[in-house]
């Protein structure tokens, strides 16, 4: 894939107090590409995703979306964030709004669409994640898998150029992860550009163009799924993959 580069991340550093959480992260993302980030707990994967849309402001480094700087963008950040969809581990749905209103609200308040237009668009997105019949339910009335699909629809409604997923299935029961992963697979196949933090190696193997292994705030190594999984360069990567294998079953079999 030699497409256009739509997201550039350069030398991102972030410390909390005296702990350096990110220590110089750089990569490029091509249009339509899916990158999967793996690495042990506390290596800064969530922090990295939040630095991309500036929910966390990095201490150093830049992020560009379509050649426009996202870091140091001042008030423009609100416009740029619309183009960077984000899906959280805990869904973070708006508890007081129905599924449809969850998807609608930013269209109305941010994109200034009228109610009718926004409502139609919201329904369209809910259909896309297979939840048109749940449109009038509140978050507390949805299963975890349904809630996560609503949150994906909510992000998609803004027509983002890239989607960030932070462990979208790790708060779900095993039998519910499948439905969310399926939605994500469909998205990838339809050309969405995605950065996904996940330990679902089955998903990573079948969807990712690149898997990035992070360790202590740095990218230790990266490569296509077959390269990284079958031929990891570092022992540390091998160890981590073995541990994942023990936790989630044999990776090869899940393909």
């Amino acid at each position: 894939m030699a497409g256009e580069i739509i997201l550039k991340v350069r030398d991102i550093h972030k410390s909390y107090g005296s702990t350096e959480v990110l220590r110089g992260i750089s990569f490029d993302v091509q249009k339509g590409e899916t990158k999967v980030f793996i690495g042990s707990s506390g290596t800064g994967k969530s922090t990295l995703l939040r630095c991309i849309n500036q929910l966390t402001v990095p201490d150093r480094g830049q992020v560009w979306l379509h050649g426009e700087e996202v870091t140091h963008s001042g008030k423009e950040i609100n416009r740029l964030r619309q183009k960077i969809g984000m899906v959280f581990q805990n869904f973070n749905l708006f508890d007081h709004l129905t599924a449809r209103k969850n998807v609608e609200v930013a269209l109305i308040k941010v994109r200034k669409m009228n109610r009718k237009e926004a409502g139609d668009k919201a329904m369209e997105e809910l259909v896309r994640v297979g939840l048109e019949d749940k449109a009038d339910l509140y978050p507390a009335e949805l299963s975890g898998g349904q809630a996560q699909r609503v949150s994906i629809a909510r992000a998609l409604a803004m027509d983002p150029d890239v989607m960030l997923f932070d462990e979208p299935t790790s708060a779900l029961d095993p039998e519910l992860t499948g439905e969310v992963l399926q939605v994500m697979k469909d998205l990838a196949q339809n050309g969405m550009t995605m950065l996904v933090v996940t330990h679902e190696m089955g998903f990573a193997c079948s969807v990712a163009n690149e898997i990035i292994f992070m360790e202590k705030g740095e990218i230790l190594e990266s490569g296509s799924p077959s390269e990284l999984i079958c031929n990891p360069r570092y022992d540390r990567t091998k160890q981590f993959l073995n541990k994942l294998g023990e936790l989630y079953g044999d990776i090869g079999r899940q393909r």
Partner: peptide, 22 residues
């Protein structure tokens, strides 16, 4: 939950919009 504030801001709402609407 502060996560909802993050989600609202991630959608492009300003802090004010997020507080008022969410």
């Amino acid at each position: 939950r502060t996560g909802q504030l993050m989600a609202a801001e991630a959608l492009g709402m300003t802090r004010g919009q997020a507080v008022i609407n969410i």
